[in-house]
Amino acid sequence: GTLHLNGVTVKVPSLEKAIKAAKKFAKKYNLEVQVHGNTVHVH
């Protein structure tokens, strides 16, 4: 999967790991997580 954090793109081995990391990051910075196919966006 691919993880987008505020314009930074990170390749992640699995989508589940990407979503987990995204949710952790989003919670910390009070951001929103959106999943588009195998790409996770945090903004």
Score class of each variant (00 low, 15 high):
17 K>S: 11
18 A>L: 14
14 S>P: 02
7 G>A: 05
12 V>D: 02
38 N>G: 06
28 K>H: 08
22 A>C: 13
35 V>I: 10
7 G>D: 05
30 N>P: 06
17 K>L: 14
26 A>L: 07
43 H>V: 12
19 I>G: 00
14 S>M: 06
22 A>I: 15
12 V>M: 15
3 L>A: 04
2 T>N: 11
38 N>H: 08
26 A>W: 09
34 Q>T: 15
5 L>K: 04
33 V>C: 10
21 A>E: 07
3 L>R: 03
28 K>T: 05
27 K>C: 10
3 L>I: 13
11 K>W: 15
27 K>Q: 11
15 L>G: 00
33 V>Q: 00
34 Q>V: 15
5 L>N: 02
5 L>F: 15
28 K>W: 12
36 H>T: 12
23 K>Y: 07
40 V>A: 03
30 N>E: 07
31 L>M: 12
18 A>D: 00
39 T>W: 11
3 L>C: 10
17 K>R: 12
43 H>I: 14
16 E>K: 12
29 Y>H: 13
10 V>M: 10
38 N>K: 09
11 K>I: 12
17 K>A: 14
39 T>Q: 10
25 F>C: 13
35 V>Q: 02
18 A>E: 00
9 T>F: 13
15 L>Q: 00
7 G>M: 08
2 T>P: 03
16 E>W: 06
26 A>R: 03
30 N>D: 09
7 G>E: 05
36 H>Q: 09
16 E>R: 12
26 A>K: 04
6 N>A: 10
26 A>E: 04
8 V>Y: 13
43 H>S: 09
27 K>F: 02
25 F>M: 09
13 P>E: 11
37 G>M: 04
3 L>W: 01
9 T>K: 10
9 T>M: 12
10 V>C: 15
31 L>T: 02
5 L>E: 03
19 I>C: 02
29 Y>A: 05
30 N>R: 05
38 N>S: 10
33 V>H: 00
17 K>P: 01
24 K>V: 06
8 V>D: 03
8 V>M: 12
13 P>Y: 06
40 V>T: 01
39 T>A: 09
25 F>P: 01
11 K>V: 11
14 S>N: 12
43 H>A: 09
25 F>K: 04
7 G>F: 10
28 K>M: 09
37 G>R: 04
25 F>D: 02
18 A>W: 10
2 T>E: 10
29 Y>N: 07
19 I>T: 01
24 K>F: 06
19 I>P: 00
4 H>M: 09
42 V>S: 02
17 K>D: 12
1 G>I: 15
24 K>R: 13
21 A>F: 12
38 N>P: 04
17 K>V: 12
13 P>T: 14
39 T>M: 11
41 H>I: 15
13 P>V: 13
34 Q>F: 14
8 V>H: 13
17 K>H: 10
21 A>N: 04
29 Y>S: 03
39 T>C: 14
28 K>S: 02
3 L>T: 03
41 H>E: 14
31 L>A: 05
16 E>Y: 05
33 V>M: 05
6 N>I: 12
31 L>C: 13
13 P>A: 14
4 H>E: 07
43 H>N: 07
2 T>Q: 12
40 V>C: 03
38 N>V: 09
41 H>W: 10
6 N>W: 15
14 S>K: 03
41 H>V: 14
14 S>E: 04
31 L>W: 08
41 H>M: 14
31 L>H: 04
20 K>Q: 13
19 I>V: 06
10 V>Y: 13
6 N>Y: 11
30 N>T: 04
22 A>G: 02
39 T>D: 07
25 F>Q: 03
39 T>P: 02
41 H>G: 04
8 V>K: 12
19 I>A: 02
37 G>D: 05
15 L>I: 11
10 V>H: 06
38 N>I: 11
1 G>P: 11
34 Q>N: 07
28 K>V: 06
34 Q>R: 10
19 I>H: 01
15 L>F: 06
40 V>R: 01
5 L>C: 15
28 K>G: 03
22 A>N: 00
41 H>F: 14
15 L>Y: 04
35 V>Y: 04
38 N>W: 14
27 K>L: 05
19 I>M: 06
24 K>D: 11
2 T>M: 13
25 F>A: 07
16 E>L: 09
14 S>R: 05
9 T>Y: 13
27 K>N: 06
33 V>P: 00
10 V>W: 09
21 A>R: 08
3 L>S: 02
2 T>R: 12
23 K>T: 09
19 I>K: 01
19 I>L: 11
13 P>K: 15
2 T>F: 15
43 H>C: 13
32 E>I: 14
17 K>G: 09
14 S>Q: 05
